[in-house]
Every structure is written in structure tokens, then in C-alpha cells.
Computed example of a mutant assay.
Amino acid sequence: MLSIKLLGGAKKSFGTDFLPVDLEDIPIKSLLDHLVSIKPKNTMTLDTKNILVAVNGVDSSALDGLDTILYSNDVITIIPIIHGGAYTRNRFQICNKSAELFHVKNVSGKNYDFLNSARKNFPTMILEGISSKHILGITHAKKMIGVSLFAQKHNSLLSKKLETDILLRFGITTQISDAIKTIGIENCKDFIIIAIGKKPSLDKLYDSLAPFLNSQIQFGDNSKFIQKQFKITKKHLDSIDSDTPLEDLLVEKAAVLV
């Protein structure tokens, strides 16, 4: 019998900080394979390439690494490490507000149920879902959020709710039905949740969403798709004196909506 102590994200992967395992005389790599195989579904991924493993308080790298043999009654401690962007959070300040982007993986075609559940659990926060295909990157998202926050400050929102204004700005439209049809999340494989709120609330939201998040926000090259979606031509882009003409043109179109 092995005694497994789980710290940090590993604890969230299994919903406990201690796990007895009825195995012995096996290498660490076999134990890790076993843990991955028994991890509950819909919990945070156990990234076995980014963990430290200690055996009876000794770092396994000082022993035989992943080939270290584990014996009966050994105590194995698993400690996730964060480096090279793993589990990177995308929180930022804009217009004196704290905001964060969360990249949600497929939640079995129940994207709006998922979003509405988060809204119910965090009623003081602003939460909106946007198709990840309609976001060029993090700076694009920041600028668009900034447009909505600026409009809120100057009492010129396109809707009574800030989250709806954000949806409309990304959709480059004043019609909610058109925005939902264009950039809505109902049929998306994955999507971005834009969250605005106090830092402690963002931390609690992150903990709640963690099992459903990609470890990093990933945007493909969506430029051609977005150009076609919003009928933006090369001539339009050539008229913009900028290093990011498509991004800036989208923000400009969003800003002039009334």
C-alpha cells in the first residue's frame, strides 16, 4: 500500500489531499500512469510533466527519477509546478477595473447553461461568453472590453447591462439577436468567458472554473475568418496605419456603434 499526498492543483484533480493506492514495488512512472487512469472525470487535468514527486520527503530527482521504485508504506507527495506558461491566468486592469479571460473547453453542448450557472454563483460579477473564433488575441479582447467600460463611464452603453454591451461590441452590431447568432457560444467547441469583478471574486471564479479550462488561452489564426464574417476587405485594412490593422479596425467599428 502506498500513501499519496496531493498538493495544490493535484488536490483539485482528485478532490482530496490524501489517496491510498494498493500498489507496491513499482516505479514512479507507473504510479503516475495509474493516477491519471483513476482521476475523476471533469476535474483539473493532472499534468504529469509539470510536477515534483517526493518519496518519504526526498525529491525523486535525487533518487532514480521516474524509475525510482516505490515500496509498501512509502509516502509519495505530488506537487504541481507552474512554469513556461502552464495554467497561466490572464487577469488585467482596465479603466480601473479588474478583468480576466477564461478559455472554457467543450462542456457537452451546454455552453449557455454553464455560463448562466456561473452567473448565478457569482451574481456580483460581470460575465459574458464570446466565441473564441471571434477574438484575435488577448490585446484585441482588452481593447474591446475597454470600449464597453468607457461607454459605461460616459452613460452610453448599447444596453442596460454591461455584459450585453460587451457582446454587442464584439458582434459589431446593436441587435442582441444578431450578436448571439454571430458570436454566441451555443454551438462552440470552446469559448471565452470575459469576467469583470473584484480580485477575490476572480480568484473564486477561477477555482470554480478550473476543471473546465484550457491550461492556456489559445487563439488560432482567426483573422481570415473574422474578415469574412464582418466583410472586411484588404482595401479596408490597407487604409489603417497600424501594426495591427484588423484589430484596430474592429475596435473602431465597435466604438462607433450607437
Rank of each mutant, 00 (worst) to 15 (best):
V55N: 05
V55F: 00
G57C: 07
D59L: 10
S61F: 09
S61R: 15
S61D: 13
A62L: 13
D64V: 00
L66Y: 09
L66D: 13
L66P: 03
L66M: 10
T68H: 03
T68C: 03
I69L: 15
Y71A: 12
Y71P: 06
S72L: 11
S72G: 13
S72I: 08
N73M: 09
N73H: 11
N73G: 04
N73C: 08
I76E: 05
I76M: 07
T77Q: 09
I78E: 01
I78Q: 00
G84E: 15
Y87H: 11
T88K: 15
N90G: 02
N90S: 15
Q93S: 13
K97I: 00
S98T: 12
S98R: 12
E100M: 11
L101N: 00
L101E: 00
H103A: 05
V104Q: 02
K105E: 14
K105T: 09
V107H: 02
S108T: 05
G109P: 02
K110D: 11
N111C: 03
N111Q: 05
Y112C: 09
S117A: 11
A118L: 14
A118D: 09
R119I: 04
K120F: 11
N121K: 12
N121I: 04
P123D: 10
T124Q: 13
I126M: 10
L127H: 01
L127D: 01
E128G: 03
G129L: 01
S131G: 15
K133L: 10
H134L: 10
I135G: 04
G137A: 06
G137D: 15
I138R: 03
I138C: 02
T139R: 13
T139L: 12
H140D: 15
A141Q: 01
K143P: 04
K143M: 08
M144N: 08
M144W: 02
I145K: 15
F150D: 15
K153N: 12
H154K: 15
H154C: 09
N155Q: 14
S156R: 14
S156A: 12
L157T: 08
L157P: 07
L158Q: 02
L162A: 04
L162H: 03
E163G: 00
E163V: 00
T164H: 14
I166H: 03
I166P: 03
I166K: 03
R169T: 01
F170P: 15
I172H: 12
I172M: 13
T173K: 12
T173A: 13
T174N: 13
I176D: 15
D178K: 14
I180N: 14
I180Y: 10
I180D: 11
T182A: 11
I183C: 04
N187D: 12
K189M: 10
K189H: 11
K189N: 14
F191W: 06
I192Q: 09
